[in-house]
Design a protein around this nucleic acid. Structure first.
Length: 945
RNA sequence: GCCCGGGUGGCGGAACUGGUAUACGCGCACGACUUAAAAUCGUGUCCCUCACGGGAUGCGGGUUCGAUUCCCGCCCCGGGCACCA
């Protein structure tokens, strides 16, 4: 299916364009500015990601459109080509990182030019350029001076294969992202950035960003803010104290034991005191050996050991409770210690069951009956009641009551009040006797919780709070069922239903809840009011939180899941951390005038294997003098992670050659923030949080003028293999873009990738569907034959297309933009001739999508300059406004016909016309029109009786 | 388990702010051209019905003159976090 020679055309124009940027970065007066960025590498194999150029094509289309629309466009290339892939390549092929980067960039450029990507390459920067990383080091020094960068000796992840330390972002689960080896824990000195200090701002400023909800939500989860209280427990016969964090201070009275993280430092304080020291030490050792995978692979099965002889004192009631070590408590979150409330926490519940610890309910789950809600101003009355689910052993069915009269519509289990002097069990048997006339009943389970419901007894002007004791009972057979008394039968009908239907038949929420609790063996949900809590009984959970905290002498606090950012690597590669260690002064920042600290030449830049950076072996580099006191000092040999440069590189693109400051303030104010950032979902929680943090630090030190770096953010949907799986060399299902370009051309590839579906959505590649894109371009090419100056014009379709393509490209809805271009093409194809002006305008609209073909046709039509430097066509709104509209007519909500009308037709005239439409008349015959609704330019809706 | 996103023909998908559901493309069927095939062009293509008409946007209910769109309950798929107290 070859009707135009894509190879010749594409080659010709790529050559002509090679030294012309099709959208040069400009700062022309009076033009709108646009700063567009993407982060995807396109080249595949050899250490780079296997991928498709969808992201780049999209930003390219967008940039061309903006440029043609008269905007100043800044569109630099992404970052990944210079980062981790290059490093991997360097290590694997034993070449210097700088060479690896150069190779990658050259290749990157070549591949992008193949798909018609062509712009101002002079702005590019990369990590090996000291002029660039000087400013990364500069920012680090500023952080150090503000206490935001500090040293720490926490255990870190160690990859035994790469022989290097890894931060969380280098891991997938607990597996090294680069080599797939399971990592170990190893204590090591690290530089850490205090990102937690920015947690609240990172969270709050998220609100106003026009990002997709899912990315925002991921960041919120990642930061993981939770509000609660910190409470201190004294230790019996000791001056030690244990502080815990809890989100449920309202359940303090339910704490029946305490748990410490086994790896937590303060555990050793207790070793002297415990009477089972051996056992405790064994457990600590076992936990340390377990990898994180083992810990989670064991599921939620709880393990732990008691600290015999150690008791904590609950500050709310001075109760002495045992203390355990268990690995379900993490040393890294909160204080590394918890109070355990088994009645109201899943994990504590599971642990308590396994270790036979007491479970004390302190919150009664209480639901307001939505069918019969409590009324304002009624007297509050409390009743003790029983609810019993009765099972017929023979059939397996359960007894339910369908209520009549005032309770019509309600279906419940058998229930009733507990009379004076009755036990709940006696009440159960009595109710079954009364309501079901059954004897020979056995109670088989009593729910360990009590529950409650509030409802309104309107006839007595009472709000009732029913405290319910819940039971499960069985009857051998219903054969000897007696006569149900008349007064009971009047109130309700007894029905027997299958177990699977019980839940859906039960009507007030409380009844459903009771059934669910009876089925499950779980901790209780987190709403209701307090019990077993002394003077706080009866308060709601919300009311109690602050009051109980105060009573316990604790304070309300906030915790985050987000941890500080481990910012050092033991590698050659990367920006050296600009610190000098002096024996007298400690760690001292390298003065600004001595920046950048440049990587020395080195024979082997592979990891040393000892955990130290290869730089540590270069004595001439390591030994220096302290900038403060002049005494001998040693340089920091750790280097920064790849995230360092990528956290702010977008700012450097604005002003890549500046040697005076990070970025010129005026230029920064002009171009910032990035208007459109396109990347992958994998950046949602790491790169995008790190950049936001870095940017906010720069804002705080006055280097930039906006609090957020990126405005619109689009995450590109993955192109899956034709079989619906991920493209992977392992599966052999990879579609190589280079082959596609060879077969059908770069233009077809571009059109197809933009047309295949919504930009953000993951879609499977389909070579079949791609033929549609090729056919479309062939039609466009074919129409050229009938183009003439006096050819036929369809202004309406043309201007509709101008409008829709502009709007859709703006919204990144490339698929619908192309759809409209196809509609226009089909329209031109049906005509015998096409006017030159219309065709030329159409080509301009198509140009961003199919740059080579449109450039060729443009020049054939006499264009001397590039079509990509033309101006974007302007939509003539008056043509659209003057077009007649099709008005639909609905009768009682059903469409019965349509008619054509001028857009400015009066409402009354539209109604009159609507009533005369053929398909409508029979539906009006003999009926009265009671309502007429007119939606201008769209429809008339008639309601008849 | 918790949170987020989604469910529309045989397939990819479209539908402005509640206003003619199924645009555009792929596929399929029939026809034209051809000795023939491919390519191309034309016509048709949600389901039931000869028709009138009726029914369909995961399922059930609600609000509305009118619901893919809003509300309530459920099912399924995708993704994120996950012993985070």
């Amino acid at each position: 299916m070859k009707s135009y020679d894509h190879k010749a055309i594409e080659k010709k124009w790529q050559k002509k364009w090679s030294d012309t940027a099709l959208y040069k970065t400009r700062e022309d007066e009076g033009k709108e500015k646009y700063f567009i960025m993407d982060m995807f590498p396109y080249p595949s194999g050899d250490g780079l990601h296997v991928g498709h150029p969808k992201g780049y094509i999209a930003t390219d289309v967008y940039a061309r459109f903006k440029s043609m629309s008269g905007c100043n466009v800044l569109h630099p290339m992404g970052w990944d080509a210079f980062g981790l892939p290059a490093e991997n390549y360097a290590i694997k092929n034993k070449v210097h990182p700088e060479i690896a980067v150069k190779k990658n960039v050259a290749r990157f450029k070549e591949q992008l030019e193949k798909i018609g990507f062509n712009y101002d390459w002079d702005r590019e920067i990369n990590t090996t350029d000291p002029e660039f990383y000087k400013w990364t080091q500069w920012a680090f020094v500023k952080m150090f001076e503000r206490g935001l960068a500090f040293e720490s000796h926490e255990p870190i992840n160690w990859c035994p294969s790469c022989k290097t330390g890894l931060a969380n972002e280098d891991l997938e689960g607990n597996v090294c992202e680069r080599c797939g080896t399971v990592v170990e824990k190893k204590p090591m000195r690290q530089w850490v950035l205090k990102i937690t200090e920015y947690a609240d701002r990172l969270l709050e400023d998220l609100e106003d960003l026009p990002w997709s909800e899912s990315v925002k939500e991921m960041q919120r989860n990642w930061i993981g803010r939770s509000e609660g209280a910190s409470v201190t427990f004294a230790v019996k016969d000791s001056d030690k104290k244990i502080e815990v964090f809890t989100t449920r201070p309202d359940t303090l009275f339910g704490a029946t034991y305490m748990v410490l993280a086994p790896e937590h430092a303060f555990v050793s304080d207790f070793l002297e005191v415990v009477t089972n020291r051996k056992e405790v030490e064994v457990y600590i050792e076992q936990t340390a050996k377990k990898t994180e995978i083992e810990r989670t692979a064991e599921g939620k099965e709880k393990t732990g050991v008691v600290l015999d002889g150690v008791y904590a004192v609950n500050p709310v009631n001075n109760e002495e409770i045992p203390v355990y070590l268990a690995d379900y408590v993490l040393a890294t979150y909160g204080t590394g210690a918890i109070m355990a409330v088994p009645a109201h926490d899943e994990r504590d519940f599971a642990f308590a069951k396994k270790f036979n610890l007491p479970i004390r309910q302190v919150v009664v789950p209480c639901a307001d009956d939505s069918n019969n809600p409590p009324q304002e101003g009624f007297t509050e009355v409390k009743r003790d009641t029983v609810i019993v689910h009765l099972k017929d052993k023979e059939t397996g069915k359960y007894a339910l009551l369908d209520w009549h009269g005032t309770l019509e519509g309600i279906t419940t289990a058998i229930m009733g009040g507990i009379e004076e002097g009755q036990t709940p069990e006696e009440a159960v048997l009595a109710e079954i006797e009364e309501e079901a006339a059954l004897a020979g009943v056995t109670i088989i389970k009593k729910l360990e919780w009590i529950t409650a419901a509030r409802y309104c007894a309107s006839h007595k002007k009472e709000n009732r709070l029913a405290i319910a004791h819940v039971f499960l009972a069985e009857v051998d057979s219903v054969k000897n069922q007696g006569e149900i008394p008349e007064d009971e039968a009047k109130k309700h009908t007894l029905v027997w239903v299958d177990e699977s239907e019980v839940l859906e038949r039960l009507i007030p929420d409380h009844q459903k809840q009771v059934w669910s609790l009876l089925q499950r063996d779980e901790a209780l949900p987190g709403y209701g009011f307090l019990m077993n809590s002394g003077k706080f009984d009866g308060l709601t959970v919300e009311e109690a939180k602050e009051k109980v905290t105060k009573h316990a002498g604790g304070k309300l606090t906030t915790q985050y899941r987000l941890q500080d950012w481990v910012f050092s690597r033991q590698r050659y590669w990367g920006e050296p951390i600009p610190i000098i260690h002096c024996e007298k002064c400690g760690p001292v920042a390298v003065p600004e005038e001595d920046l950048p600290v440049i990587l020395p030449d080195v024979e082997s830049y592979e990891p040393t294997g000892t955990g130290e950076s290869p730089l540590a072996n270069i004595e001439g580099w390591v030994n220096t003098t302290c900038p403060t006191c002049g005494a001998p000092g040693k340089r920091e040999t750790n280097t920064m992670p790849q995230w360092a440069g990528s956290s702010w590189y977008y700012l450097r693109y604005i002003d890549p050659k500046n040697d005076k400051e990070l970025v010129d303030k005026k230029k920064e104010q002009y171009w910032s923030p990035v208007d459109m950032y396109v990347g992958g979902m994998e950046h949602a929680t790491r790169h995008l949080i790190y950049s936001r943090f870095w940017h906010k630090v720069l804002y705080d030190i006055g280097a930039v003028s906006y609090i957020e770096p990126f405005q619109k953010l689009y995450t590109v949907g993955l192109i899956q293999a034709e079989d619906g799986r991920k493209m992977s060399k392992r599966w052999g299902n990879v579609i190589n873009p280079d082959d596609v370009i060879d077969n059908v051309g770069a233009d077809t590839l571009r059109v197809y990738e933009m047309f295949m579906g919504p930009f953000v959505q993951a879609i499977a590649w389909s070579t079949d569907h791609m033929t549609g894109a090729r056919r479309f371009l062939e039609k466009v090419y074919g129409i050229k034959e009938k183009v003439s100056d006096d050819g036929e014009m369809n202004e309406l379709v043309l201007h509709q297309t101008i409008q829709k393509v502009a709007r859709d490209v703006q919204d990144f809805s490339f698929n619908t933009a192309i759809s409209q271009l196809m509609i226009h093409t089909n329209d031109m194809e049906k005509r015998t001739s096409v006017g030159t002006e219309e065709y030329k305008t159409f080509l301009k609209l198509l140009a961003p999508f199919a740059p080579h073909l449109t450039e060729e046709l443009w020049s054939e039509l006499g264009g001397t300059d590039s079509i990509h430097l033309e101006e974007w066509p302007v939509c003539d709104e008056s043509i659209l406004a003057a077009a007649t509209v099709t008005v639909a007519v609905q009768v009682n909500g059903k469409t019965r016909g349509t008619f054509e009308a001028a857009p400015d037709t009066e409402d009354s005239e539209l109604v009159k016309k609507a009533k005369e439409v053929d398909g409508v008349k029979p539906h009006l015959a003999g009926k009265e029109v009671v309502r007429e609704i007119v939606v201008k330019g769209r429809m008339v809706s008639l309601v008849v009786k």
